[in-house]
Design a protein around this nucleic acid. Sequence first.
DNA 1: GTGTAAAGTTAAGTTCGCTTAATAAAAAAG
DNA 2: CTTTTTTATTAAGCGAACTTAACTTTACAC
Lengths: 150, 150
Amino acid sequence: MSDVSSLNDLLRTWVEITTHRTMRDQARYVRSLGFSMPQFFLLMQVYYRKQCGISDLSEHMEVTLAAASQMVEKLVQAGLLQRAEHPADRRIKQVTLSPKGRELIEKSLAERFRWVDNLVGCLSPQEQDDVRSALATLLQAFQRETEGDR
Amino acid sequence: MSDVSSLNDLLRTWVEITTHRTMRDQARYVRSLGFSMPQFFLLMQVYYRKQCGISDLSEHMEVTLAAASQMVEKLVQAGLLQRAEHPADRRIKQVTLSPKGRELIEKSLAERFRWVDNLVGCLSPQEQDDVRSALATLLQAFQRETEGDR
DNA sequence: GTGTAAAGTTAAGTTCGCTTAATAAAAAAG
DNA sequence: CTTTTTTATTAAGCGAACTTAACTTTACAC
């Protein structure tokens, strides 16, 4: 990669590298605790949605309702999830993280972002400022582009 | 996220969002073709290393030699990989992508990066320039940080 | 109220990715 | 030239993550 790389190539490279690194660290940490990546992804969904039904999970993980139900069951057994009736609609199960589940996710996020945080320390104050405004720009563009998605 | 977000938070958010998006698109595309993510990861290894032995793959995928051998076998059967004797050391099998395998990887990378390329189009020329130099800075920092790793 | 739709569970069975253990063949070491 | 190490394969078996199909319970429509 030379100095005259196009913005396109730089962005691709950056995304490529960070994705690879992130997934590798994440997988290592999660597996070292005895959990699988599909389990972890499900926990992450619950983490970000705060509270959701089995069919929400089924939809976002792109598996059948039965599969989602079974995974949730295992994670409840493992003490990472809690399952409760929805007060207004008793068909729906509200799935939430247990304290233990929340701790697992938060620790694994810390693990995931350790190198990200280190990276900031490698930059001069001037660089930090430039990078900050560039990232803000990128995030705005991303949100503009993916309106309505997700 | 407000305007006064720390660089740290911005970086975390950016990495989080891009990783999630990348993996989701990738998984969808790969599965739509009837392949699994572990298979895809193995193909990616071969793609980036150009040529490698079974034990290289075993090491980098962090599975046993037997597991790597079996996955390679399936991918050879599927016509995505080629396996040949190393000319200098006949114990070693040189694994390479077949034309079909290369095509699969390249198409899936195009799929993965479609949104990345779109993003660039959302930026003004001035923004593009700022982002370019910021990314170059970040990549340099990353490479400095991970010296000797990988 | 009766019928239909929605949310979830359970059972049975399949496939995949992995492991350990045994084996073969080539290279390196002595 | 024999022994040891490296590289890879094969066999047997296990658990995880799915699927489809049958079933229960609750909500909603009319």
